[in-house]
Design a protein around this nucleic acid. Structure first.
Length: 396
RNA sequence: GCGUCGGUGGUAGAGUGGUCAAUUACAAGAGACUGUAAAUCUCUCGCCUUCGGGCUACGUAGGUUCGAAUCCUACCCGGCGCA
């Protein structure tokens, strides 16, 4: 087995830790931010550009790559690493998130993050249930109708793992159901049992094949403390190489949810908080013992003109930046070193793709280095003051 | 000069007697985005407003009509054709 996780330092009065994951394609110094490369590309960036941001590893998506160009095709092309020319560690997500995004969330503008202020709306809207889902769940798997051509596809845990074997990432995930924060407790329980059963199936099938990849199980349980703990206990007892923490959260309560889970999960294995990436969430999650994170935000909001800065996000599309000759922020990324806000704002208004690329480079650099700095300060003992200073300036 | 077609909000371009402050697109202004259905989506976009409405507007000036961006007349401007 080429996979290992070594903890370099644990914070004695908390859950946080610093470590190193070793894979056949190199190391990941944790805590680390993982760039999202859904369709075998971090949108807008070449592998060299990605590397230059400090990113150590990329997570691709099983559902999307299965649809196009197909897992067999990728295998034929030498696997994900070779095809996309990424020599570092790679991960693949199982398609479990698409159960949510193409299922309960489809066409509803739903986020897996629920803010307290949204909960009032929830009761009013709850009856406009069941519109056009294009992912349908049954006890054995999920039927997806492809979002592009409408073709029908059926995923089971075994199928997801099989696809991930063909894709060939270093770290792969069990097939799970990411539930909507709007589901009832009754439904959350039912979904959790399903995810647990699927976790065992994923693991069983994976063990048979001996591919050398590391399989991570995924903890679910939504916003409910009992379910989160139950899930951490169940998944934590299975023989996974590491864990994902998935599902929906209450924004204001996310750090607690992470703490419930990480207090139970075996600490000698790495924990990946799936799909989380805002600064305040990352500080909380690192503090409560998460090692890995991924999030579409640096690239998605970047393509839409939103820029992370030490003083908070700015919308570069706004008028005020059209003649701002300062850099996006004061970091050492390629965009900040070479271009002004005004120029990049011009590119964005002109719909020139370089604008999206430059902001994506900056945003990934920003988040990646913020997490790196968390690692440094965990080692030096300055984490809490770094957290305090950073958040104070960011959310000023 | 004659004939002809046309002049609509930042732009393009609908509308051809009431339901028109005027479809739509773009531009503009703002907001959203957390395991990517996303270079996407939402809102605003004449002026004023106690958000009920009020006022000024479809080249200009008159006119017909209960009512005109829409019909008539003159003028101004532009395209095209003929001299």
């Amino acid at each position: 087995m080429t996979f290992s996780f070594e903890i370099e330092k644990e914070i004695s009065n908390g859950l946080a830790r610093v470590g190193t994951i070793k894979t056949a394609h190199g190391e990941i110094k944790t805590p680390a931010f993982v760039a999202v490369g859904t369709k075998a590309t971090v949108k807008g960036l070449t592998p060299d550009q990605i590397k230059e941001t400090g990113v150590q590893t990329i997570i691709c998506n099983t559902y999307h790559l299965y649809l196009d160009p197909g897992a067999e095709q990728i295998k034929k092309l030498g696997g994900l690493h070779k095809m996309m020319n990424w020599s570092g560690p790679l991960m693949t997500d199982s398609g479990g998130f698409q159960v949510f995004s193409l299922g309960a969330a489809y066409g509803k503008g739903l986020s897996k993050i629920l803010k307290k202020s949204d909960e009032l709306l929830l009761s009013e809207q709850s009856d406009e249930e069941d519109k056009p889902r294009i992912a349908k769940i049954d006890p054995n798997g999920v039927m997806f109708r492809a979002h592009d051509d409408g073709s029908a596809h059926y995923f089971t845990p075994e199928k997801s793992i099989n696809i991930q074997h063909n894709l060939g990432a270093d770290i792969i995930f069990a097939f799970d159901e990411c539930t909507s924060p709007h589901e009832s407790l009754h439904y959350q329980k039912e979904a959790l049992d399903r995810t647990h059963r699927w976790a065992k199936q994923s693991l069983g099938y994976h063990k048979l094949k001996n591919t050398g990849q590391a399989l991570f199980g995924i903890v679910q349980g939504g916003r409910n403390e009992e379910l989160r703990k139950e899930s951490a206990t169940f998944i934590g007892n299975l023989d996974f190489e590491g864990f994902g923490i998935g599902g929906s959260f209450e924004k204001e309560d996310m750090t607690n949810a992470v703490e419930w889970v990480n207090s139970i999960l075996p600490k000698e294995k790495p924990r990946h908080l799936l799909g989380i990436g805002e600064p305040i969430d990352l500080f909380g999650a690192v503090e409560k013992g998460c090692d890995l994170f991924d999030c579409v935000n640096p690239t998605r909001i970047g393509r839409n003109g939103m820029v992370y800065t030490k003083n908070g996000r700015i919308n570069l599309m706004n008028k005020e930046f059209r003649d701002d000759s300062t850099p996006l922020d004061d970091c050492k990324c390629y965009a900040c070193k070479n271009f002004s806000r005004a120029y990049i704002a011009h590119l964005m208004h002109a719909k020139e793709i370089l604008g999206a690329t430059l902001i994506s480079i900056h945003n990934i650099y920003f988040i990646t280095h913020m997490v790196m700095q968390m690692r440094e300060t965990l080692l030096s003992g300055d984490f809490l003051s770094y957290k305090k200073d950073f958040l104070k300036q960011y959310y000023h």
